[in-house]
Design a protein around this nucleic acid. Sequence first.
DNA 1: CAAATGACGGGGT
DNA 2: AACCCCGCCATTT
Length: 117
Amino acid sequence: MQDVSEAILSVVEQVPRGKVTTYGAIAERAGLPRRARLVGRVLSSLPKRSAVPWHRVVAAGGRIALPQGAPARDQQIRRLRREGVDASSGRVDLGRHGWRSPAGDLDRWLWHVGDEN
DNA sequence: CAAATGACGGGGT
DNA sequence: AACCCCGCCATTT
C-alpha cells in the first residue's frame, strides 16, 4: 500500500500551478480506477509541511471537498486564489482551470478517440 | 465479524 | 443549487 500512495502523490505533483483536477482523475491517472476515495485519504494524511500541491485537487464538478469549518478548506481556497483560481464560492470552474494531462491529450491525438469510429 | 466513516462519484428530485 | 441515495473502497469502530 506504500507504493500506492507514492503513485498517487507523484501524479498530484504533476498538476501545474493555476490548474486543478479531481480525485477521480488522479486515481485514474495513477492506475487506480474507481479509487477516488483512496486519493482523498492519502491527501488527508499528508504532513502539514508537504510540498505536494494537494490544494489543486478538488471533487467532481470542481467542488471543494473539505467541509465548512475545516481550516484546511480555507487554506485551499487561499492557495488557489494565490494562483489565480477563484474558489470563493466553494467550487472552481473546471472548464477554465481544469487540468488535462499531456498524456491524455497525446493519446487522444494519436488514437483519435472521439472521432467517429 | 457487522456497522460506521470518510478530502469520492454519479444520478435523480 | 441543494439535497438525498446508493455504489465504491480502505480503515476504524
